[in-house]
């Protein structure tokens, strides 16, 4: 049951990422074409930059799923068995804890910008974009905590 829910969540995440990536590519290209034809759209640039932020957070969340976060792994390459388990438990729970703090900190940012009604552009409030930060870090914390108890698939030095 939990497996099924996780699978569905992952699929939603994958789809969201692909859609955001495609929107980013074609909106950015459209902006260039529009500029060449002398048309500027005031809200397009802030929206594109907001998209980068969302993609960064969703990408980081997915990177957690596949152990793709950048780390120094010279030592861990030498570990196996229980020592590898212990190292993962320690480091991934640490990462989860940091993500909790970051989620809390970004919730503070969202609050701050809601109170002062900081705009992203025109009438769009900035916090609509920023809300991905507490949500993203929160989910990342959860995922790190779960991964702490799971060993990765047989080691495959992949391109990062």
């Amino acid at each position: 049951m939990i497996q099924r829910v996780l699978k569905i969540l992952e699929q939603i995440e994958n789809t969201a990422m692909a859609v955001l990536a495609l929107v980013l590519i074609f909106a950015a290209a459209a902006q260039v074409v529009l500029r060449l034809f002398d048309v500027g759209v005031v809200w397009l640039d802030p929206v594109l930059r907001a998209l980068v932020m969302w993609i960064a957070m969703l990408g980081a969340l997915a990177a957690t799923r596949h152990d793709k976060h950048i780390n120094l792994d010279a030592l861990t390459r030498l570990l196996s068995g229980w020592s590898l388990r212990a190292a993962r438990l320690l480091t991934l729970l640490f990462a989860a804890a940091i993500c909790v703090v970051l989620a809390n900190a970004s919730y503070g940012l969202v609050q701050l910008d809601r109170e002062s009604m900081t705009p992203l552009v025109n009438d769009i409030p900035a916090w609509w974009v920023e809300v991905i930060l507490p949500v993203g870090f929160g989910l990342m914390a959860l995922r790190f905590a779960l991964r702490a108890f799971v060993l990765p698939a047989p080691s495959q030095p992949e391109a990062t």
């Binding site: 500027g40 005031v42 640039d45």
Partner: peptide, 25 residues
């Protein structure tokens, strides 16, 4: 191709009033 500073409300309105479509950067 006219530049308008981002977040400069007055400049944006002024360009609107003179039918200029500026590029925000």
């Amino acid at each position: 191709k006219v530049w308008v500073p981002q977040n400069d409300k007055i400049a944006q309105v002024a360009f609107e009033q003179s039918q200029v479509n500026p590029i925000p950067l």
